[in-house]
Every structure is written in structure tokens, then in C-alpha cells.
């Protein structure tokens, strides 16, 4: 790839505004964000439209399986009772991130001018991480009346040392959380587009992008799971009652 192409790949990343709502630019990632959300809401509507206690639709079975699986996964982190109560948060993140990640693997979608997989943009993943951060603070205040913040002052003598460290740790979380997700998906898509470029030049290397796609299927799932798990860890820590 020449330097020109490298710069092009970066600019193709598509943070240019499609249109504006008031002062706020709407980029293709924001459209993608809304598209993924609309798709999930459509699925949810299709399922809840005829919800059966004895399920007879495959979609309901799949979504129930996902819900139960996520519950048992987060139960290991914060116990079954709180996992059930807070289930909508990790489950929504998981569904959103998984569908967004996989949307980048459908061959047509990333080439639409108005759509990019939202999780391949740092701005979007940062938004998700900021949401997690805000929700953790809200939970800490509402659930434990701020008892969560006691750990910042834990050894009273070391407070001058521990307080800044604790605050920095709390603020670094959204940074690393968003960067991990974004970098994984973005790297995968970049690798995929490079592979497709190579195949365009040398057709018999076709297995390469197929292999990368398979790898990205795994990575997309694992990254959704990682984000979900860390969210559950943070929310679990913020909602923990110390006796």
C-alpha cells in the first residue's frame, strides 16, 4: 500500500458528516448506530408480538437462549439475583455490539456510503463506554449510597496516594473499554479490506479474506462478550453491598 492509499484508508474511515441535525453532524457511523438499533427493535417486536410460554418460533428460542446464556454468564460475576435484575444492560450491549460487528462482515454493507458498522468507530464505542461509566456512577449512588467510593479511601493513611490512582483507574476504564472494542473491529475491517485489495490483484489468494472473515466472526463475538463481561464486572462492583 502506498502512502497515498494508507491515507485514503484512514479517510475512508468516514467520519465526514452526511447531514446536520441542528449543530450536530450525523455521520455514517451514527446512521449505522441507528440502523443496528432499529434492526434489534424490529427483532424484539417480532418476538414479543407473539410471546409464548411454550415457544414455537425459532426466533424466540434463539433470543431466549441468548438471554439465558447471558444471565448464566453474568451470574458468575455478580450472582444470579443481581445478574437477573441488571440483565438488560449487559444483554443490550451484547446484542448491539454483536450485530454491529457482524454487520461489517456482510460483503455489501460496508460499501454503502451511508453505513459503517458503528462499533468500528471510536466515537461510537467511546459513547458506549461513557454510557457504562455513567451507569456505574448512577448504580453506585442509587444502590449502595456511595459505599462503592469507599475503596478510594481504603487504607486511610494512604488516601493521598490511593485517591488519585482510584480516580485515574475509574477514568481510564472507558478509554480502554472503548479503544479495545474499536481497535479490534477496525483492525479486522482494515485487514479484510487489505485482503480484498490483494485478491483483486492476485485472484488465487481468495482463501485469505475468507480466513480473515472466519477469524473476525470469532473476534466479533469475543469482543461483544468482553465488553459485556467488563460492564457486568463494573456494575457488579458498584452494586455490591458490603456487610
Amino acid at each position: 500500500m502506498s502512502t497515498h492509499e494508507f491515507a485514503l484508508a484512514a479517510s475512508e474511515h468516514g467520519s465526514d458528516a452526511l447531514f446536520y441535525i441542528g449543530p450536530a453532524p450525523v455521520t455514517s457511523a451514527v446512521v449505522g448506530l441507528w440502523a443496528v438499533m432499529a434492526f434489534i427493535l424490529l427483532l424484539a417486536w417480532l418476538v414479543t408480538r407473539r410471546l409464548e410460554m411454550v415457544p414455537n418460533s425459532r426466533l424466540q428460542n434463539v433470543l431466549e437462549l441468548a438471554i439465558e446464556g447471558l444471565h448464566s454468564w453474568t451470574s458468575r460475576i455478580m450472582g444470579p439475583e443481581r445478574a437477573w435484575r441488571y440483565l438488560p444492560i449487559p444483554a443490550t450491549f451484547f446484542l448491539f455490539i454483536l450485530i454491529s460487528n457482524y454487520s461489517g462482515l456482510i460483503p455489501i454493507l460496508p460499501h454503502l456510503p451511508w453505513y459503517v458498522p458503528p462499533t468500528s468507530h471510536w466515537g461510537v464505542t467511546a459513547g458506549l463506554a461513557v454510557f457504562v461509566f455513567l451507569f456505574v456512577q448512577y448504580t453506585a449512588v442509587k444502590e449502595t449510597r456511595g459505599a462503592y467510593y469507599k475503596h478510594l479511601f481504603d487504607p486511610p493513611l494512604l488516601t493521598p496516594l490511593m485517591l488519585p490512582l482510584g480516580i485515574i483507574e475509574e477514568l481510564v476504564r472507558p478509554f480502554s473499554l472503548s479503544l479495545r472494542l474499536f481497535a479490534n473491529i477496525f483492525a479486522g475491517e482494515t485487514a479484510l479490506s487489505v485482503m480484498i485489495g490483494i485478491v483483486a490483484a492476485i485472484p488465487f489468494l481468495l482463501p485469505l479474506p475468507i480466513f480473515v472473515t472466519a477469524l473476525e466472526m470469532v473476534a466479533g463475538f469475543v469482543q461483544a462478550l468482553i465488553f459485556t463481561t467488563l460492564t457486568a464486572v463494573y456494575v457488579g462492583a458498584a452494586s455490591e453491598h458490603h456487610h
Binding site: A7, A10, S11, H13, G14, S15, D16, A24, P25, V26, T27, A29, V30, L33, W34, M37, I40, L41, A44, P88, I89, T92, F96, P118, H121, W122, G123, V124, A126, G127, L128, V130, F131, L134
Partner: peptide
């Protein structure tokens, strides 16, 4: 030159996600 980090996207995401979570 497009930026790698667009802060408007963050704003849109936080607002949209809150509404999305509520609806879902």
C-alpha cells in the same frame, strides 16, 4: 482529513443508547 475520533458520534451514541435501552 477525517478524524479517528469524532466527539459528536460519542454524544449521539450516549443519547441514542439511552433511548434504545429504554425502548428495548
Amino acid at each position: 482529513m477525517a478524524e479517528l475520533f469524532n466527539v459528536w458520534e460519542t454524544v449521539w451514541t450516549v443519547i441514542s443508547f439511552a433511548i434504545f435501552l429504554f425502548l428495548l
